[in-house]
Amino acid sequence: MPRSPLQLLDGLLDADGMAAAAHRFVLGGPFGAEPAETTAERLAHFADAGGLLVETSHSYAGGRAEAAVGRWLRRNPGVLGVTTKVGHDPTGGDIPLSRDTVFAHVRSALENLGVEAVDVLLYHCDDPARSVAELADTLVSLTEAGHVRRVGVSNWRAERLSELAARLGERGHTPVASYQFSLAEPDPTLLAGSLHADSAVLDVVRRHRLPLLGWSSQARGYFARSGPKEPGDRPDPYDTEDNRARRLRCRELAERLGSRPETVALAWTLHHPGVWPSIGPRNTAQIDNSLRARRLTLTEEQVHWLRDGR
Rank of each mutant, 00 (worst) to 15 (best):
V26M: 00
Q218V: 11
L183N: 08
D233K: 12
R295S: 15
T299G: 13
E241A: 15
P5Q: 02
H124Q: 09
L212E: 08
G17R: 13
F25W: 01
S290W: 00
D10V: 09
V176P: 05
V102W: 02
V79G: 03
Q302P: 08
G62I: 02
T284H: 06
P186L: 05
D308W: 14
F46Y: 01
T299M: 09
H147A: 15
S59W: 12
V132K: 07
R160S: 00
V102K: 02
D48P: 06
L135E: 03
H304E: 14
G309Q: 08
V106H: 00
V69P: 05
A158T: 02
G214E: 08
G87E: 06
S199G: 04
A224H: 10
V303S: 08
S278I: 15
G78Y: 02
P2Q: 11
A166D: 11
R225K: 09
R225H: 05
V120L: 04
P188I: 09
W305G: 11
N112G: 12
A197T: 00
G50M: 04
R107N: 12
A44D: 13
D48S: 14
P235V: 03
F46I: 00
L13A: 10
F103R: 15
L213G: 04
R64D: 13
G51A: 03
E252R: 13
D203W: 07
L12P: 02
A117N: 06
A33W: 11
G221A: 06
P90N: 01
D48Q: 14
Y60M: 11
A22V: 05
P186D: 06
T299F: 05
S290H: 12
A245H: 11
R249T: 07
P211Q: 01
N112E: 12
L296P: 00
R249M: 01
A293S: 13
A145P: 05
G17F: 14
G51P: 07
T84S: 10
G214R: 10
D137K: 05
R209I: 07
L12E: 11
E134H: 12
R74C: 10
G11N: 08
R42G: 01
P231G: 10
R207N: 10
D89W: 10
E116K: 13
V54G: 00
R24T: 07
L210E: 03
A293Q: 05
H45C: 12
L306C: 02
L139D: 03
F25A: 00
R71V: 06
V176I: 12
V102S: 08
L122A: 02
E41Y: 07
P5H: 07
P2K: 11
F223H: 01
S154I: 10
